[in-house]
Write a protein that binds this DNA or RNA. Structure first.
Length: 862
RNA sequence: GGGUGCUUAGCUCAGUGGUAGAGCGUCUCGUUUACACCGAGAAUGUCGGGGGUUCGAAACCCUCAGCGCCCA
């Protein structure tokens, strides 16, 4: 059987995604549909793609994030906006440098063997050869990004912007250099910001050590015994009665034989450990704070590799973890270990890139003073200029921006934006802007900037800032930022801070739409070690991009994680096949979009009903998508397409399509499919494009109009009638099933009752496999005022029928009781809204008549 | 320790005051003018426990228990 289209094209009998996806994507690129026009008079709709790492490959989280962005972009494009969805990549400082260093390591080389210049050259070579694999994978998903505007955080324009903003922030007093305790990775040999540190529960030890002798001794507790070599004081709480008398005195620090003071500071928790803590000013952030307050000296006892150095003890030259063991052993020997707990589970910081245990280290670094920036970022949300969706996640945002520490932005790496600060021969310090030259003989700071410093500018420097470009004017601020809540703090907050600063207080987006993480089918986090990682490419190969996209969008409830299983992607593929076959069937039956839709007065109730359901669906889906309710939008479309259209409309209309009076229905069906394909297109771009072009002969759904719900089509009367037909069909099917009739077995049957239902008697007969001929009824049913009589050749299964009726009777009695209780409740009658009371009264009447009918039927059964 | 969620069918989750829902899975029947990647029918829940507010609570409040995430 074939289905012909306006273009003479035919649909294959089975849907195979691989046949259409890549050629459709090429078609869209060739037609230049995704390239935005800054000179357009249309209202702009802008999204910047959260730039994936240049080292990255597409994982399921990207697939979700990008599917949602593509849905919004495609819908807005169809709605007539000038849509810019800007793609690009992040240079990912540490991650990328690690990749290239690893490659060098395989050849027995380190970056130092190459030298800075050649190493950076090598990284660029790596990028040209193997970087950005993710971009091609994104094309598989069908992303409608503007490739002509693709950016990279290290490209020329963005690099210039980085230098410009550094200078601007420095001039505003927002960037400074200071000696502080920072997170140090002894393997990557660089400083890390707070958010580049992952806290894990590690099995460590908790050791209590006695300092001093006799009366003048005090027991401190620590998880890092080796740092005692650098202690400058012991701290207690000022109100602690145990130690009050010792405040201001000194105790002997063992091993190094130094007298150190006992100080009082409110930071100390009396209930924790012994209530006395050692103060290692150069190796712990809290100790550093106390040391500053009490003038405790900073004693550095480790080098950059985490190796003990400069303590003047036997421990110099030992790795920090070996030193921990050795120091405890030695102290034990001396009888100074009062108590030990092992294992002691506590949170320990690890480098988020290489998992090495982070070492707090006193070091001179560049910082951003975040207080004013964070306040502006918080205010933008508090004032309503920026909306967080879902609103429930706003407190998390505030918790962060309201309590933010200064941001360490220097990294001791080679791959990244080099800090534009130059030092003169006499310790002069100067920030050199993009168009300036450093004086002769000066040297540049060797460090580079934190990757987030440049990606924080993604929402404006991608448009050409600091130049006053047409793109910037047209597309900034962006409309919505779509991203996972997991990078709210990493990236979103940085974008907010940098953008509001650079763009004169205008926040970078109007809405921050946060989605959750994709988890495995049991809701567990995906991880390589668990072996439960879902590869989006594999599943696109297997089920098609549309199936993956639909599954992800259907699971995307605002701000919450979603589980994903292969079976569910298979289910979405089944849905795609359903759409394919429904369209194929429709076209075999002459569905078309030629000319105007017939007036509703000329349509039968089935056509009026599907138009009514269509209008309601379009109305609901539009509002759901505008509110980022992707899951509910998909659910609504799924049930309209599968239940209303395929299971009921097509089945009820088969009779019509076989008759001579089918023209109106053919036009209606064409219209419904046309609108359905348009509405599904943002979620399932490939199959809808293929089906719609075949059905309508149109150029492309990418540039087709977004459907408007036609409220004049909403027809409650037809909905009521069709719902009665559905009830009749379902009940008779149930009866047939209970009676053991085969689905295809024809049975003589006839209807009597209200005329508007009887008008569709032949459609009912078709669905119920009832024959229209004279017979003596042996069974009868009554549903919704319609009487159905059937001939079961004289014998029916009385036991089965009795069981069925009794079940119905019990349900009806239960309903009756609830209704009676409510109506008999004076409080309910007095306080419940009128429409609820009416509803309950109707329910009472219906259940009463049902009970009478069922009771009579039971009595009639022999 | 601070913050913030979650607990509804076998599994994963919707559902914010008016008769408990979906997808997947399970059971039965079935190749009938698209589709077995299908159709028809069925089973399955004192909505974590307890208390309160209300005419009415899965939903609102309190409390207990369990689980999770973020931050320190």
């Amino acid at each position: 059987m074939s289905s012909s289209s306006p273009t003479g094209k035919e649909l294959a009998s089975t849907f195979n995604p691989a046949d259409i996806e890549s050629s459709l994507y090429s078609k869209w690129l060739k037609a230049d549909y995704f390239t935005a026009d800054a000179s357009s008079t249309k209202e702009a709709f802008t999204i910047v793609l959260p730039p994936p790492n240049v080292t990255g490959v597409l994982h399921i989280g990207h697939a979700l994030d990008q599917t949602l962005q593509d849905c919004l972009s495609r819908m807005k494009r169809m709605k007539g906006y000038e849509v810019l969805w800007l793609p690009g990549m992040d240079h990912a400082g540490i991650a990328t440098q690690n990749v290239v260093e690893k490659q060098l390591g395989a050849q027995g080389l380190s970056r130092h063997d190459l030298g800075r210049e050649d190493f950076v050259k090598k990284v660029w070579e790596w990028k040209a050869e193997s970087g950005g694999a993710i971009l091609d994978q994104m094309k598989r998903l069908g992303v409608s990004v503007d490739w002509s505007r693709e950016r990279f955080t290290m490209d020329e324009g963005m690099s210039k912007a980085v230098v410009s903003i550094f200078k601007k922030m420095h001039e505003a007093g927002l960037i400074y250099r200071a000696e502080r305790i920072i997170n140090w990775c002894p393997r990557c040999l660089t400083a890390l910001s707070d958010i580049e540190v992952d806290h894990q529960d590690d099995a460590g030890e908790f050791v209590q050590i006695r300092y001093g002798e006799g009366e003048q001794s005090i027991v401190v507790a620590t998880t890092r015994a080796e740092t005692m070599l650098g202690d400058g004081a012991v701290a207690v709480h000022p109100d602690d009665p145990r130690y009050k008398h010792m405040i201001g005195t000194e105790v002997l620090l063992p091993l190094v034989d130094r007298m150190i003071p006992i100080i009082a500071d409110e930071l100390v928790e009396m209930d924790f450990g012994t209530g006395a803590v050692k103060v290692t000013a150069a190796h712990d952030p809290n100790d550093f704070e106390m040391a500053v307050r009490h003038n405790v000296p900073f004693v550095v006892i480790m080098n950059e590799h985490g190796v003990m150095a400069g303590t003047g003890t036997e421990f110099d030259g030992m790795d920090r973890f070996d030193a921990r063991v050795a120091v405890v052993a030695k102290l034990k020997e001396m009888g100074r270990v009062v108590a030990e707990k092992r294992p002691y589970i506590h949170a320990v910081g690890h480098c988020s890139r290489c998992d090495t245990t982070v070492e707090p280290r006193l070091s001179k670094q560049w910082f951003v003073k975040v207080a004013p920036l964070a306040k502006a970022s918080a205010d933008a949300v508090r004032s309503g200029e920026v909306k967080i969706e879902p609103e429930a996640l706003a407190p998390r945002y505030f918790e962060w921006v309201d309590n933010m520490h200064d941001w360490c932005i220097s990294r001791q790496l080679w791959w990244g934006h080099r800090i534009p600060v130059w030092y003169g021969p006499n310790d002069e310090v100067k920030v050199i802007g993009p168009d300036e030259k450093a004086p002769e003989g000066w040297t540049q700071d060797p460090d580079v900037l934190d990757t987030w410093f440049s990606s924080g500018q993604w929402a404006f420097s991608t448009f050409g800032w600091p130049e006053k470009t047409a793109d910037l004017a047209k597309f900034y601020p962006t409309s919505v930022l779509v991203t996972g809540y997991d990078i709210l703090f990493f990236w979103v907050v940085r974008m907010m801070m940098m953008s509001t600063f650079a763009m004169d207080g205008v926040a970078p987006f109007k809405t921050i739409m946060l989605h959750g993480l994709v988890r495995d089918q049991f809701g567990k986090k995906m991880s390589k070690s668990r072996g439960n990682v879902i590869d989006p490419i594999e599943f696109m190969d297997k089920y098609g991009a549309d199936a993956l996209r639909f599954t992800l969008a259907r699971g995307a409830n605002p701000g919450t994680d979603q589980a994903l299983a292969e079976d569910w992607i298979g289910g979405s593929r089944n849905f795609a096949t359903k759409l394919w076959n429904a369209t194929r069937f429709a076209m075999m039956n002459g569905a078309n979009v030629n000319g105007a839709l017939p007036a509703t007065s000329e349509l039968n109730a089935i056509d009026r009903w599907i138009l009514s359901r269509l209008s309601e669906t379009l109305r609901d889906v539009d509002s759901l998508l505008e509110n980022f309710e992707f899951a509910r939008a998909c659910e609504t479309l799924y049930h309209f397409a599968w239940d209303d259209l395929c299971d009921w409309y097509l089945e009820l209309s088969k009779e019509t399509f076989a008759s001579d009076s089918k023209a109106n229905s053919q036009r209606v069906l064409g219209h419904v499919l046309d609108q359905l394909m348009r509405t599904l297109h943002p979620v399932m771009p490939f199959i809808t494009e293929e089906l719609w072009c075949t059905l309508t002969g149109g150029e492309s759904l990418v540039v087709a109009g977004w459907p408007k719900s036609d409220s004049s089509h909403i027809d409650k009367k037809s909905e009521k009638l069709i719902s009665t037909l559905q009830e009749v069909v379902t009940e008779v099917r149930r009866f047939r099933n209970d009676q053991g009739l085969k689905p295809a077995q024809k049975v003589p049957g006839r209807f009597s009752g209200s005329a508007d239902v009887l008008e569709y008697a032949s459609a009912l007969r078709f669905l119920l496999k009832l024959e229209d001929k004279d017979f003596t009824p042996s069974a009868s049913l009554e549903i919704g005022g319609i009487k159905i009589e059937l001939d079961l050749t004289g014998s029916i299964d009385v036991v089965a029928e009795r069981a069925r009726l009794e079940k119905d009777l019990a349900a009806a009695k239960k309903d009756l009781q609830t209704a009676e209780v409510k109506l008999g409740n004076a409080g309910f009658m007095a306080k419940a809204p009128a429409d609820v009371v009416v509803e309950i009264k109707e329910r009472l009447a219906k259940t009463t008549s049902d009970i009478e009918r069922i009771t009579a039927a039971l009595a009639a059964l022999k």
